[in-house]
Design a protein around this nucleic acid. Structure first.
Lengths: 151, 151
DNA sequence: TTATTAAAAGATAAACTTGTCTTTTATTAT
DNA sequence: ATAATAAAAGACAAGTTTATCTTTTAATAA
């Protein structure tokens, strides 16, 4: 046993968030980004991030174009996407909606022992995720004070 | 695609927390609980919770005795175990220690774009998990205002 | 129209988590 | 001592997530 490797988001979701930020950065200069470039840029397996980008495309969080000079890009509207949207698209929203103990019956009327306290955490987590948009990150990263890659 | 099934804790961890609470309840009456009873009580697969109880036993979060009248039980000291301890034993502490984007290099000096805000969430989450001990739950459940089982 | 480019889609495999079943070990009661 | 009980340990199988590779579709440029 002894797994010890549980993070807040799935690997797919981590990649998705990083990729969205990466594409946003490139979109500023009106250039499209291919999966190879994304994979290099965020340090992810190439074919795996390709699948994730497909999913994000289907869910309309990112735009794509085939053929020469094709690739992924974002419109100004896409920059309003927040992290909660991305998480919802990839991991679902159980994290900040459902019972932390996985109880289907847990509710205000029928609370599990941590229900009320976890409700507060969920609220703050959701607020944090919603309040950070992909557009915000552009500014943050541009400032040079924030980083994205595993060096 | 479309998995959408990511919770805060792993299934193993959810079971572990519920089982710990369940054993604590029974330990009050100085009775030991077998895996069958635990499995029924918390609505989990029998052989799977057996494995988890073994791990919790190895990590000394719960006591066990073999043979007739054997089973799992808790000492008064064990009742001071908090949820963070259980999560740490089963899922590890990445959730409230590491970078939410999985960046190994993320730190105060080299922060990812959500580092500072997530730090706050982590702090609150950890506080919540540490401040809820198994002993507390006894009282909560006894009050009849809180529930544990999927009905 | 044809060749080239790049995403979309599909198929497959490795790794990990979850779940089941069997055997072994230790303890208690007779 | 022996039988019965229950956890510990081990082996295995199903399900899910992560990762890789190949084929198809769509778009552009020549």
């Amino acid at each position: 046993m002894s797994h010890t490797n549980r993070y807040m988001f799935s690997k797919s979701c981590e990649y998705a968030i990083k990729a969205m930020i990466f594409v946003a950065q490139k979109s500023k200069e009106h250039s499209r980004v291919g999966v190879k470039e994304i994979a290099k840029g965020i340090d992810s397996p190439e074919h795996f991030i390709a699948k994730i980008m497909q999913e994000l495309g289907r869910k309309r969080l990112v735009q794509s174009a085939k053929g020469p000079n094709g690739g992924f890009y974002m419109t100004d509207k896409d920059l309003n996407t927040n992290i909660a949207d991305i998480v919802k698209a990839i991991d679902g929203d159980q994290l900040y909606v459902d019972c932390v103990l996985g109880l289907k019956t847990c509710s205000e009327k029928n609370p599990c022992p941590v229900h009320h306290e976890y409700k507060e955490i969920k609220r703050k987590l959701l607020h944090m995720l919603e309040h950070n948009t992909i557009g915000n990150f552009n500014d943050k990263l541009d400032s040079g004070k924030f980083f994205l890659k595993n060096l």
